[in-house]
Design a protein around this nucleic acid. Structure first.
Lengths: 210, 210
DNA sequence: TGTCAGTACTGTACCGTCTAGTTCCCCCAG
DNA sequence: CTGGGGGAACTAGACGGTACAGTACTGACA
């Protein structure tokens, strides 16, 4: 799967250099000259690999959309065993939070949202491949827990939506509006994850396990 | 309070015309020429009222930050009477949702987030004046409900955060990534509000009122 | 011989300034 | 109450300077 021809190498080199440029300045603010310079590549080479600025941009985003894989695996891994439900949920919440609060990912989020109107396909793909996909995994996991009787819920999808809402709304918004990196220490994330997991359990745990 | 001199009129005229230009193209993409043209005003006049592009931009954002007033009033109005708690919460959720899903406000959100790195003050102000302020109002309202014994919570602020998280995470994200306007019908918003209010009650209502 | 770095070039867009002529508003004389 | 100056505010458009997307050309190098 790892292409290592000269062309593929150059292509990766350009992509890697282009990402920070677009992340820093947005689509309009990103300069192809800067991309070429940062990639130590001539502009001609950039245009050999990507037909134009737009195609380079969408390539950057689509590339990182694939990384959701890890998140879905983490979900099933954490909830599949028969351990303590409360503890599992807390761990799951903590994993989710840590993943989504990654500074690079947050910047990408901002970028995609900013350009969602200009590039509708991009926004839709990001939402479906990243957002909905992890939500769907969570939904099936919760569904299994309901069948085992440890969760009490009519609608697993709604429960999954509520779980991530409890967990993510506050920290993600804070991060989106206050650009900084040092918003939350590890301990803060622990606390947020624990609070969300406990509230979720109160709302959705079966009475006998609460 | 309503200034109607020529100066104030022109200023408002420019602001009104500039808003869609910035909303559509972002800060870098917005053209001062287009602003002037859309406002039916000469460029000279634009620069008489606003020292430069940056100041015009921040004026647009700050102007709309003031509109949170309405939201806080709605919160206290809905939760202050002694009506049915479940019904009040549902109504509050519905009001919140309707307000935040206003297309114009969503576009502003996107814009502020996109430029939060370039204009840190703007992001911070938006967050504090809009986000935190309404959250604080909700916190005190929940605190009163806890004192009356209808809610059971150690931390009113956490409860407020969870309330909005349950309610807003899904629809707001959907709207941010899928630019469209017709994402949700009124009935969908009703359903979302009801579901959030019920989950919140299960997590935070006193046992005797549940 | 073909690929790439380096760079010059073309065409366009835009910010902010400037000039010159025009319109509107307010105040006060009659 | 009225009507007409005075001066600020405004229009229209050109302009300098800069930046950038995308193309074209040259020379090196493998």
């Amino acid at each position: 799967m790892e292409e290592n021809g000269r062309t593929a190498r150059k292509r990766a080199q350009i992509l890697e250099a282009a990402r920070p440029v677009f992340l820093r300045n947005g689509y309009v603010g990103a300069s192809m000259d800067e991309v070429a310079a940062l990639a130590s590549v001539s502009k001609q080479t950039v245009y050999k690999h990507f037909t134009d600025k737009e195609q380079l941009f969408t390539s950057i985003i689509m590339d990182t959309t694939a990384q959701v894989e890890g998140l879905t695996k983490m979900i099933t891994a954490t909830l599949d065993d028969d351990g303590d439900l409360a503890e599992d949920l807390r761990a799951l919440a903590r994993g989710f939070l840590g993943a989504i609060m990654e500074p690079e990912l947050l910047r990408l989020r901002r970028l995609v949202m900013a350009e969602a109107e200009r590039f509708p396909d991009l926004g839709r793909t990001w939402y479906e491949q990243g957002f909905e996909r992890s939500l769907k995994t969570l939904t099936t996991a919760f569904g299994r827990l309901a069948e085992r009787g440890v969760l009490r819920l009519d609608d697993p999808e709604l429960a999954a939506e509520h779980f991530v809402g409890l967990l993510l709304w506050i920290p993600v918004n804070k991060a989106m509006f206050r650009g900084g990196n040092d918003l939350y220490a590890e301990a803060d994330l622990d606390r947020l994850a624990e609070a969300a997991a406990r509230a979720f359990l109160r709302a959705y745990a079966s009475p006998d396990t609460a």
